[in-house]
């Protein structure tokens, strides 16, 4: 009945069976906190983000941090070798993680990472796409929808302009990127369900 935490934001999927649930959670939290702080630092640098109200900044980050991390850490998923590198630096195969209890979310994240990486975006394009992911006016709890929507539209226009400039013969890339947004929502929902299962367990 050994427990495993098959999230790559953990240092390792192995959980010390002698530790309490609280201790396991504390250790996991300690592991992913720097990545979350990086997302906040990234958000602060998005032009216009700091002009949103404080509650809306928090709401956007609460709702979108997981999706931003999926984009930023897509490279942890090695599609060719079917392995995932955890934050501790060690690689684990899909089969190993499946044996530890990983489910459909794992496959869905591999699919997403493969498609995103195959688009061959530059660092600048990826950053702008990540900003679009974070600034979404339809997140729950947004107070000033108009302000968030205006910033979202500005960012989407900038992304389209950059993609069009850099890939003049590949007009479908921008559309493909926008279609990644509902994919990320779906992954976010699946992840929330897994968290619930973990907390209940």
């Amino acid at each position: 009945n050994r427990m495993h935490l098959v999230c790559p934001m953990n240092t390792s999927p192995h959980v010390d069976p002698h530790k309490s649930g609280h201790e396991v959670w504390e250790e996991f939290s300690h592991s992913f906190t720097p990545a979350v702080r990086e997302v906040v630092e990234f958000a602060k640098k998005i032009p216009g983000f700091r002009d949103l109200s404080q509650p809306d900044q928090v709401s956007l980050l609460k709702a979108g941090t997981f999706e931003v991390l999926v984009v930023r850490f897509a490279s942890l998923f090695d599609v060719k070798d079917r392995t995932i590198t955890f934050l501790g630096g060690k690689k684990y195969s899909v089969d190993t993680l499946r044996a530890m209890g990983a489910g459909d979310l794992l496959n869905s994240m591999f699919d997403f990472s493969e498609k995103l990486i195959n688009l061959g975006l530059s660092e600048e394009e990826m950053s702008l796409f990540t900003a679009v992911v974070l600034v979404s006016a339809d997140r729950s709890g947004i107070e000033n929808v108009n302000s968030v929507e205006a910033l979202q539209e500005t960012l989407i226009r900038a992304l389209r302009s950059l993609i069009t400039k850099n890939h003049p013969n590949e007009s479908a890339i921008f559309t493909k990127l926008l279609l990644k947004l509902p994919d990320l929502r779906s992954l976010n929902n699946m992840h929330s369900e897994q968290l619930l299962a973990f907390k209940v367990h």
């Binding site: 900044q57 609460k62 929330s192």
Partner: peptide, 27 residues
């Protein structure tokens, strides 16, 4: 489980990380 971020303690991390910046704005 409508608010996974709060359950994870994410909200606290986010607020603290934003805080410095927000205090800076208030000044």
């Amino acid at each position: 489980f409508s608010d996974p971020a709060s359950n994870l303690g994410l909200e606290d991390i986010i607020r603290k990380a934003l805080m410095g910046n927000l205090e800076e704005r208030q000044e």
